[in-house]
Simulated scan of single mutants.
Amino acid sequence: MLAYVIPLCMVMMGIAAALNVYRLIKGPDLPDRVLALDTLYINALAIIVLFGIWLTSDLFFEAALLIAVTGFVSTVALGKHMLHGEIID
């Protein structure tokens, strides 16, 4: 059963990522683009975790953890830059 469900979920996450890239390029304002980038890394994280479950490999979960930390830090840095204009006070 998982042989059918996991590739289907990966395709759906790929479609969601493509829609996020569209919003990232077309977004009318900077906050829309930051939100699209934040959602894009979460979708990429989900695709990597699904791929790791599909291949039963622990290496993909470590990569997903690194992407999650990097994505969180970049979202905080972009949010601070949008509010204050500087990242480091």
Rank of each mutant, 00 (worst) to 15 (best):
V73T: 11
I67V: 14
T39D: 02
I53T: 15
P31R: 03
T39Q: 00
N43K: 00
L59V: 11
L78D: 00
A17D: 00
L45S: 07
D38E: 07
P31E: 02
A77I: 15
A16K: 02
G85M: 04
S57P: 06
I67H: 00
D89Y: 04
I47H: 04
L37S: 02
G27S: 06
H81M: 14
H84R: 08
K26S: 13
G27Y: 13
I53C: 11
A63P: 07
Y22F: 00
H81C: 14
D58E: 12
K80W: 11
I6G: 13
L19V: 03
D32H: 09
H81N: 11
T70G: 12
C9N: 00
G27K: 09
N20Q: 04
H84M: 13
I53W: 13
L65R: 01
M82W: 08
L24R: 06
A44H: 06
M1I: 13
M13T: 15
E86W: 04
V11T: 01
L83Q: 14
Y4K: 07
I87S: 06
H84G: 13
L55A: 13
L19T: 04
W54L: 15
I48T: 11
L8Q: 12
A3N: 07
G52M: 03
I48A: 05
I53F: 15
M12Q: 03
I67T: 05
L19P: 03
I88P: 05
A77N: 05
D38H: 05
G27W: 15
D89L: 00
A63E: 11
G85L: 03
I48L: 09
I25G: 07
L35G: 02
R33A: 08
L55W: 14
L55H: 15
C9Q: 00
A68W: 09
I25K: 04
H81K: 10
G52A: 11
L59P: 12
L50Q: 07
T75A: 08
D32P: 05
L35I: 04
I48N: 03
G85H: 01
F60N: 14
G14V: 01
L83T: 12
V69A: 12
I87K: 00
I25V: 09
Y22Q: 01
H81L: 11
T39A: 02
G52Q: 05
M10R: 00
L37N: 02
L24Q: 02
A44K: 01
L2K: 01
L50M: 12
W54V: 14
P28E: 14
L55P: 15
